[in-house]
Amino acid sequence: MSRWLTAGVAVAIITVLSAAALWASAPPAARAQTAPDVRLRETPAPRSHTAPAAESAATRMTLQLSNATLQANRETLPDGADLTLLAQPTYVALPGAGPNLLRVSPAFTVTARDAGGRDIELSPAARMTFIQPNAEGASVLRLEGDSWRAVPAVRLGHALIVQPTRTGTYAVFAELPPDWPLHDDLLTAVALNAARLVVDDLATPP
């Protein structure tokens, strides 16, 4: 092969590759996952969600957590007003909370509405107490838009106590160090016990 032909090959390679690198735009990413979504057999594919059962479960959990304390507080509300505490599905990691911050409790949503359906302020005496063993390494965050923001919390032994001055969604988060071992038992304990929520002194606004 002559030197000119060799040079021609080199120029062709540069031209083609640089044109492709500069000109072409990235194709849209395919969505197919490892486990196939396509059906190859006759068994009907299960629905992607089971809304009726989920609704029922959420309702049941609401009732379970609307305990005697909550009921007593509700009785002090003006006629037509309502106070609810909804435990949303148990969870695990959320955007906006930080790269290693892990939500280790269900999200608890407090709503208080007057007879007209408008939000009402909670009493300054309202408290939410999260019981879990590593209060030192955990914090309570409130959902604001898509981000979780820390709220001031008082630590008393195994309890994390916050003053929910505003209605909204609260949850316990724990810092997860990068070298957190897979089988660490600490988080297990947090996750299991964080679900024990006690609501004290929820009352009507003055």
Binding site: A53, A57, P89, V92, P99
Partner: peptide
């Protein structure tokens, strides 16, 4: 999102309707 922290996972109990 594209980050590992941007995955929202939810545990939802299923019960008999």
């Amino acid at each position: 999102g594209s980050r590992s922290a941007d995955v929202l996972a939810t545990l939802r109990p299923l019960v008999t309707p």
